[in-house]
Design a protein around this nucleic acid. Structure first.
Lengths: 182, 182, 182, 182
DNA sequence: TATGAATGAGTCTTCATTCAT
DNA sequence: AATGAATGAAGACTCATTCAT
């Protein structure tokens, strides 16, 4: 992928994350290129959104790698995962809102891979007797994504401090809001 | 508010909840009226979305009332709140995505009222020594909304069973995913 | 013609005279009736405009009668005509702008009658050696209408005093702007 | 101003002058472009009409310049003014009918400049003892415009010959319709 | 009869996309 | 390769008109 294209994608992501309905015109302007150039790189809005989706998947997989979620204590792995994924919360939120993405096989496969890895982590925790069995891995996956995205918005809105966001998500997800847990 | 108008709103909500980008034409068709009639009741798409926002606030407040969140054991109050709010999860999710609404003062006031009531519940739980102090009421509010909306999507996608949704949210929010809690 | 209908027409004229593009809705509101009632009286906008045209013609003919333009000194007859027609200046201006009217035979005939009478006055003045021959009666007709309509606007805009308007038109039309004429 | 834009304006003027209610579609077609292109140059009908208004002012000022109305014999200056303004009669008539324009400050200023120059000519004639004092410059201005616009219509309707129009206006305005003037 | 409600038709406007330079 | 200009398609909106009460 050329650097130009990557930069274009990042600019588009930065805008679409905030305004999911931004027009190609606005995206092009935000990226500092003309509409036509944007179209040259991504023939059609769908292509752009798909590229964004693939970029998101790629980034997410990189973060899963970086978090080494397959290794060590599942609890710590969840914490590392949250810590790593937090910077991508806006991106995640955008992709979450674009449910149209799920019609693209490539995209489905990508998310299936990610879901599988995260679910596997939760299953591993359950098998080790650490995580509750009555909350399904699929639900925990979705809840994790949702809390990460939400915490990103909360940081933007000034409702929680940036440095607290990972802890807020981790503590809530792992320990819930009730007192009495170490 | 006339019954016609209310019905129109409900039909619009039912559609927009599933397809946030539905055109006025599609909305009108879904409601069984002509575009022009839809426009007569809601002069412009913005007016419709704003009315939906107000309806969402009204419904949410009714559900808070029905859940009697100011009364009794905070833990049980949270469970009642979730139970009550769950049917509106799709609606909530839609309004969540309409960042246009954040510019309407009336809307802000409405959500501020709701946030205040829900936050008060969390504070009450904290003051009774039941809820953790290190998770702020504001964050718990947002997390609650996010989990409710997410569970709605999960039900739609068949990831969790409708009858489980409230429990999934409640258990996760209250107790977290770690084992060992009664 | 019923009184209701006549009042409706007058109200419509009063509005359309100022805003030629006023919608049926605005006209109905200005007349204090519902759109439907307006449509009952005048089936369609064209019917209304045509009725206005006929009313205008009728009024104009009444004023020509009142001015007795066929009698006496042509110069004085012109002055009387202007004096009489002045109150209808707004009406005249509206009809002037609606050149679509000229597709209705009834209307054409009416205006032809009026034009004929006014032209006859000018011809009479020419034949008596009072009016110039190099300005055709047809042109003088049009100029007369235009000056009356314009003076009406000038009065509305405060550019000339209401009591001066007839004189301004009469003096200009009859004597022109050069000094030296008694 | 680009040539394209200017050409577009002229085409629009040519059509709107004849049919003041022409739709944007008709205008675009008359100009040989698509509606979208017309909208790109003039975002909205208002913008187009306003641009036409400004073009009208500009043209009128150029004609005042060409007529050198500030120089020489006021009577001849009036004749030159009429001669020059006559080709724009249709344009003038159109702008006259657009009462929407009266709300645009830029427009008011432009017409105020023009009115001032024309009024100054009439005042100059009065001060030289050539023009009557009992007809105010403001009224003469309006009468001049009205007669020019009317003569344009008369030419279109075949009521007066094109080559006679300037003379008809000039003679009537300057000398009135009474015989006996040289 | 008068009216509030409903609507089909047509206009305005914007978008994503393509083209000529 | 990049861009300003152009455009077809589609959505938003408004109007005159009709209908049921």
């Amino acid at each position: 992928m050329s650097l130009d294209r990557e930069q274009l994608l990042r600019d588009a992501a930065a805008l679409l994350t905030r305004r999911a309905t931004a027009s190609m015109d606005q995206i092009a302007k935000a990226a500092g290129v003309s509409r036509a150039t944007l179209h040259r790189h991504f023939p059609g809005r769908d292509a752009l959104v798909r590229a964004l989706g693939m970029l998101g998947i790629q980034q997410m997989e990189e973060r899963l790698d970086a978090a080494r979620i397959e290794e060590g204590d599942p609890i710590e792995a969840v914490r590392r995962l949250i810590e790593q994924a937090m910077p991508a919360s806006g991106f995640l939120a955008f992709l979450y809102g674009e449910n149209q993405l799920y019609d693209v096989p490539e995209m489905d496969e990508g998310w299936a891979r990610i879901d599988e890895r995260v679910s596997a982590l939760f299953r591993r925790g359950q098998e080790q007797g650490l995580f509750r069995y009555d909350l399904t891995p699929a639900w925990l996956c979705e809840a994790l994504y949702a809390l990460i995205a939400t915490s990103g918005w909360c940081v933007q809105d000034g409702k929680i401090a940036p440095r607290d966001s990972a802890r807020m998500v981790g503590e809530l997800l792992l320990g819930g809001m009730l007192r009495g847990r170490s």
